[in-house]
Nucleic acid binder design. Structure first.
Lengths: 155, 155
DNA sequence: TTCTATTGCGCAATCT
DNA sequence: TAGATTGCGCAATAGA
């Protein structure tokens, strides 16, 4: 695990030329052949920082190297894959949102229904209680209900 | 909104050149300098003829052009902005998922509660009904025909 | 250390 | 014409 933590040391080469291998490319004509290879050129340092050439530490970049191309290609593939996944994930997440929204609505509807049911039942209960009370002591005469009245009431 | 499918893939041709960082590095010096560029040739002289010196005028890509650099810089900025937004959006969507999940749990809990309440009330109701039926309390005076036949209903 | 996976970045082609 | 998006490759660097 000892990776050399290189927080900031961007390669500032500044110059890079890349050439892709000529696959079966049917390039009938190659325009000006600007395909120099990496190689720092005797370009003058603008403003001053001269990069001492010679050999950089680990020229991972030997653009000509077959190895290099192979690594690049592999990475490009990996990148594509990764991005594809990322995109897919985003879509899935979006879909999840939609599903959850639906679910949500469903639940709210159910709650409404249950609430209604509950309310009806409660009313029924109260009504019943009243009936009982009335039955026991019909308010026919309209006075002195006292005898035995079980306070109907529930809750 | 649909992006047009692009059947042809311009690059992959094989040659890319990238180059200099040249001009004073703007704001934050660019970390990774080199880039590749699938340079298509500007134009091909129909009659053949090699494109050689004579600079092709049209090419917007006069890398050295000040104009060019300016355009590039602007675009790079736009790209950054766009990507930032994209990322933000993704995060927002993810958060939405979390919120919705919570909301759903809340709703489910409520449903559970209401269901329970309803069930209790129903039981109470039934019990009551049974009580009524069982000890129908005949009013002392009246003849009680078929006393109990108050079938407890269900529902 | 070597491989793959991610991520930030610039370029260019498109889209708006 | 300019900004917004998008596909793509490079390089640095997390992760295994």
């Amino acid at each position: 695990m000892s990776r050399q933590l290189k927080l900031s040391s961007p390669d500032q080469t500044g110059v890079s030329v890349i050439q892709s291998q000529a696959h079966a490319t049917p390039p009938s004509s190659l325009p000006a052949g600007p395909q120099q290879v990496p190689q720092l050129d005797p370009a003058d340092p603008p403003g001053g920082k001269a990069v001492s050439l010679g050999k950089m530490k680990k020229p991972h970049a030997d653009k000509d190297s077959d190895e290099y191309r192979q690594r690049r290609e592999r990475n490009n593939l990996a990148v594509k894959k990764s991005r594809m996944r990322s995109k897919q994930k985003a879509m899935d997440t979006q879909q999840r949102v939609n599903e959850l929204k639906e679910e949500n609505e469903r639940l709210e509807a159910k709650i409404k229904l249950l609430s209604k049911e509950l309310s009806v039942l409660k009313d029924l209960f109260l009504e019943h209680a009243h009936n009982l009370a009335d039955n026991v002591q019909p308010p026919a005469d309209g006075a002195s209900p006292a005898p035995n009245n079980a306070s109907a009431n529930g809750q």
